[in-house]
Amino acid sequence: MIEIQDALRKKEIWAIGGGKGGIGKSLITGNVGICLARLKKKVLLVDADLGGANLHTTLGIGVPEMTLSDFLNRRVENIQDVIIKTGVPNLSLISGAQDFLDAANPNFAQKTRLLRHLEAIDVDYILLDLGAGTSFNILDFFLFSDHGILVVLPEPTAIENAYRFIKSAFYRRFRKVVTHQGIKDLIDAAMDQKNTMGIRTPFDLIERVKQMEQEVGEILELEVLKFKPKLIVNQVRTKNDIQIGFSMKSACRKYFGIDLEYLGYVEYDDSVWQSIRSKRPLAVEYPFSRPARCIERIVHNLLRKEQLTASMLF
């Protein structure tokens, strides 16, 4: 299986986000990267959490000399200069550590330059570790990637933010495919949950757009079908927590009309906390711990383009 994929080598970009902070985005990114590197894939991790970077810490690397902000501010021209080696073979990193205060808000030109350079790098997988929140930069990185992966915790706060994130990403994507200014305004207005037009769900929006211009509405419907974010539930403690992933999948189907793919869950375990305290990556320090095994399973699901099914649990 893996050999076949090697033959069809094409670079994939995965973005890991989730809206809320502190839900394990960096931890999952780092350890997914290590798992992939162990499968002999060339992996580049990019800490796109501008302004709050700590991916290097989950990998146990000190503050690097060259970071993403050096590239964004054109202090180095070539992106190769900011790529640093990690201790793991096949795994390299572009850190965002200790960036300048303004680095958190790259402008459009900086963003496109970064994405253009990322496209040209010779690796198998690029993993983008996104920051918290739903700012345009984060959403753009998420939408640009081949696979957008959402991390949630089985807690109302994280779930609320995840839905918020999906909705924002969704509407931003809508906004990019339409050219008509009137419809753009409508989408902006619909983003406001308390809008006066009675648009509550994406379905309402599409219906309204169809009334304005049938064709544009149909384009948006196609976009809905193409949008397939993936889901990881982190810090799972009980069987019911695992179930939340399936519930969210169903709710997204019914509310947004999108297919959320449930990639897997990561069990809650002290080994995670211990590995961070010792500043060594989980997959290196405790490779046989339950969370590390869960992450391996997620990587396998990603590579095989599979997802969890409810029947596995009952």
């Binding site: 779930i159 609320e160 839905y163 969210m248 169903s250 019914k254």
Partner: peptide, 26 residues
């Protein structure tokens, strides 16, 4: 059995997505 559990009024997976009235209707 499965769907009924998902749309339970206390299901946190629906949090912020559906209002209580909508959940009741579903």
């Amino acid at each position: 059995d499965r769907v009924r559990r998902i749309y339970d009024p206390n299901s946190i997976a629906l949090y912020s997505l559906f209002t209580p009235e909508e959940t009741a209707r579903i």
